[in-house]
Design a protein around this nucleic acid. Structure first.
Lengths: 250, 250
DNA sequence: CGCGGTCAGTTTGTATACATTCAGATGGAT
DNA sequence: ATCCATCTGAATGTATACAAACTGACCGCG
């Protein structure tokens, strides 16, 4: 019953959306169960109108599913669903990279990407990589992908990539923290960084096919991480949205 | 002021969404202008609550844009935006076709696609192609693309393709009617149908790369149609959502 | 003993009233 | 004359009350 006074500047709808998303991702709201609007009103502090707005937005975001008879339930995802979502994002990022390469990008525009690249290089120099470094990697990697997407200068494509990356496990840095526990962690980061380096080089040289291919392969690396993290059950809890994943053990 | 009695079975939200979408596409609501909720209440017959729900959904659909200070406005699209949206859809359909090819599809599942193919073949046999035939083509073509998407058996991918096809000018049959006025119309349909034939053959033989490539090229054909239709100003009015297109002449 | 229908409770969907914020205009000061 | 501040009207965002629909259970019937 504390902190009922949540920042007046953000709308109740946004507050409800954030609160509900947290509840979904941490498993408070379980897949398959209908979400009670009354209960959501209780837990979020907003009234029913903004709560319902938030539910609609979360449905579009892909976390909820409309029930034909009314209301919404939390969606469940199979391992295949997740890997397909990652490959989907990779395909779109590949298209963005190809557009950037084919349409041309000035040195100015590439500058921030190269800074990102250098910063990640710096991070990877330390052996072994600390947990803090993993955390910084997540930030820098997200920035790199966002900037790369922007290079396409295609609003419709940027929009779709953002939507595809909205699912926590499909986002570019989704599994980085989960992989930090793996023995292969460092190698994987190094390989990923090589992909980053190649895509910049390809864009610079206007090699569209190469830029596209490497981003696709980059996503496949993420799929591999997913598999490894799911198999290596010791640090399963680092997986984002673990509660939404349909496992055979359930 | 007539037909105030619109089917009780569908929700007010859906009614408002359909009505507003129509108004957007036919240009009653013009790009850049803020949409007045009160006015929307007047024209749709629903109250503000379902109208606001509809506005949120139309934003997610891509037809509206949120105004930072509140409310929504109709989005405007450049020719580049549209061609990128088409290529985006083509890329996703390419991925779907590749998934289908790589993962394998039974003869049973391919059956409805082949029926569609045969039906379109039948249509194209008549020369010249009648307006009614164009109209039938639109239906059959939409069904073909929908079934092809399903073949991927990937819910996340199907979902994204549906979202990408929601914009009227990005949908698989978006420009077919507009092209009916072009002299090249028949050739274009024949080439498009050849793409359909090839993608089925590729999937049958599990040639993923070929299936993917041909769907991408198929979308490029649609981009070519767009260009032709925009240049051939005699039948511009057949273009879907013409009112949303930013032209240099405006 | 199983199945179907009816009824009550609860939930969602809708309408409307209220609060708050934004846009535009008007007036004053520099 | 221009710029800024204040004010007013209107629009959006929120809360709540009402209506309709669905869920589940209980009872009766086959």
């Amino acid at each position: 019953m504390a902190e009922r006074e949540v920042d007046r500047s953000v709308s109740q709808t946004v507050k409800a959306q954030l609160a509900l998303r947290d509840q979904i991702l941490d498993g408070s709201l379980r897949p398959g169960e209908r979400i009670s609007e009354l209960q959501a009103v209780e837990t979020t502090g907003a009234s029913r109108t903004p709560v319902r707005m938030a539910l609609v937005r979360l449905e579009e975001e892909g976390l909820l599913e409309a029930i034909p008879s009314g209301g919404f339930m939390v969606k469940a995802f199979s391992e295949r669903d997740i890997s397909d979502s990652i490959e989907l994002r990779g395909t779109l990022e590949g298209l963005a990279a190809r557009f950037a390469a084919e349409r041309g990008v000035s040195a100015r525009e590439l500058e921030p990407l190269k800074e990102c690249l250098a910063a990640i290089d710096e991070l990877l120099r330390q052996v072994p990589i600390s947990i803090e470094a993993f955390s910084s990697y997540v930030t820098l990697n997200a920035r790199f992908h966002a900037q790369l997407t922007e290079l396409s200068r295609s609003p419709p494509l940027i929009r779709q990539i953002d939507r595809a990356s909205a699912l926590p496990f499909a986002s570019p840095s989704g599994f980085v923290m989960a992989q930090s526990a793996l023995p292969e962690a460092q190698q994987i980061l190094i390989i990923g960084q090589e992909h980053h380096r190649v895509v910049i080089d390809a864009i610079e040289n206007r090699e569209g096919a190469r830029a596209e291919a490497v981003m696709r392969e980059h996503a496949r690396l993420a799929v591999r991480n997913l598999r490894l993290a799911l198999r290596n059950r010791t640090h399963l809890d680092l997986l984002p949205a673990l509660a939404l994943i349909k496992t055979a053990t359930d």
